[in-house]
Simulated scan of single mutants.
Amino acid sequence: MFRLKNFYNMIGTVTVAAMLLFSINPAESHAKLQGWDLVDSGKHLDWDADTKYTSTVSSAVSIWEGYKPGIIRPDSATVVEDVYIFDYYEVSNTIAQTSSAGTMKFNDYKFQGYNSEERLHTAIHEFGHALGLDHTWGMYDVMQQGRLSINSLSNTDESSYDEAYSTY
């Protein structure tokens, strides 16, 4: 009996130690920048679009602007856009893509099958790339890749944006 009790105590201690050593807090991941952004020298990201997902784009902008206002703005007659947003159709696994050349495009082949929360996540995520953020792996990060419904910025998303902003 004594040996069995000691065995269970030992297993319990090992299990707790392993959990402490090897657990990763899913709310935390490391900030990561991609090496480029579409923010202009005035620290603005001006956008224009020809997309049927304009309301989703506007909602995504509101999420980023809620954290750091005055950066992302719609294009105007006197300002040339930094990013142009449009739809395309391609039978592939690509959901959307933002390029250093100043384009953000949504693949209608995939996007039309998404619900509004998944579309919003994708648009927020793509604006993150335009702001200079790279993919992260935190469970609650907007910058996590995939068909997700994460529609609020995590601490990692915010700290990544803060780090990117310091480079503009």
Rank of each mutant, 00 (worst) to 15 (best):
Tyr114Asn: 04
Leu33Cys: 06
Arg73Glu: 11
Trp64Ser: 06
Thr167Asn: 10
Ile150Glu: 14
Ser166Asn: 15
Ser159Trp: 11
Ile11Cys: 13
Ile72Phe: 11
Asp87Phe: 04
Thr98Gly: 03
Ser166Tyr: 11
Tyr8Ala: 13
Trp64Leu: 03
Ala17Glu: 02
Ser149Tyr: 08
Gly35Asn: 06
Val61Tyr: 01
Ile71Phe: 01
Asn155Thr: 15
Lys43Asp: 02
His30Ile: 07
Tyr89Met: 05
Asp134Cys: 00
Ser159Asn: 15
Val80Phe: 05
Val16Arg: 01
Tyr168Ala: 14
Trp64His: 07
Asn151Gln: 14
Gly102Met: 01
Ala27Leu: 13
Gly146Ala: 12
Ser92Glu: 09
Thr94Cys: 08
Val91Ser: 13
Lys32Leu: 13
Asn155Gln: 15
Pro26Ser: 05
Gly35Arg: 06
Gly128Ala: 07
Ala49Met: 05
His129Cys: 07
Ile85Ala: 05
Ala130Gln: 06
Val79Glu: 14
Trp137Gln: 12
Tyr89Leu: 08
Glu81Met: 04
Leu131Val: 07
Ala96Glu: 04
Ser160Glu: 08
Gln97Lys: 11
Asn107Tyr: 03
Ala123Arg: 03
Ser100Val: 04
Ala123His: 03
His125Asn: 09
Gly70Leu: 06
Gly70Asn: 12
Ser29Gly: 15
Glu81Val: 02
Ala123Cys: 05
Ile72Gly: 11
Tyr88Leu: 08
Lys5Thr: 13
Asn107Thr: 01
Ile72Val: 11
Leu38Phe: 00
Glu28Met: 07
Glu28Ile: 12
Glu81Ala: 14
Asn25Tyr: 14
Gln97Pro: 00
Thr56Cys: 00
Asp37Ser: 15
Ala18Arg: 03
Ala101His: 10
Asp134Ala: 14
Thr167Val: 07
Ala49Asn: 06
Met19Gln: 11
Asn151Asp: 12
Gly113Lys: 09
Ser166Met: 13
Ala18Thr: 11
Arg73Pro: 02
Ala77Asp: 07
Thr98Ile: 00
Glu163Cys: 00
Lys43Gln: 08
Leu21Thr: 11
Asn115Glu: 11
Ala60Trp: 10
Ile150His: 08
Ala101Glu: 14
Arg119Gly: 01
Leu153Asp: 10
Ala123Pro: 05
Ile63Trp: 02
Leu131Phe: 10
Ala49Val: 02
Thr122Arg: 01
Lys32Pro: 05
Phe111Ile: 13
Met143Lys: 04
Ile24Trp: 08
Arg119Glu: 06
Arg147Val: 14
Phe7Lys: 12
Ser166Ala: 15
Leu120Lys: 14
Leu38Arg: 02
Val57Gln: 01
Tyr109Arg: 03
Ser62Leu: 04
Tyr114His: 07
Phe7Gln: 08
Tyr53Lys: 00
Ser152His: 15
Thr103Glu: 12
Ala130His: 07
Val142Trp: 02
Gly66Glu: 01
Asn9Thr: 09
Lys5Val: 15
Ile124Gln: 06
Gly146Cys: 10
Gly66Ala: 02
Tyr89Arg: 10
Gly113Trp: 11
Ser55Pro: 01
Trp137Gly: 12
Tyr8Trp: 14
Asp75Arg: 06
Thr94Ala: 13
Ser99Leu: 10
Gln144Pro: 00
Val142Cys: 03
Ser59Trp: 01
Lys43Met: 04
Asp141Glu: 09
Lys43Leu: 02
Tyr53Ala: 00
Thr15Asp: 05
Tyr109Pro: 02
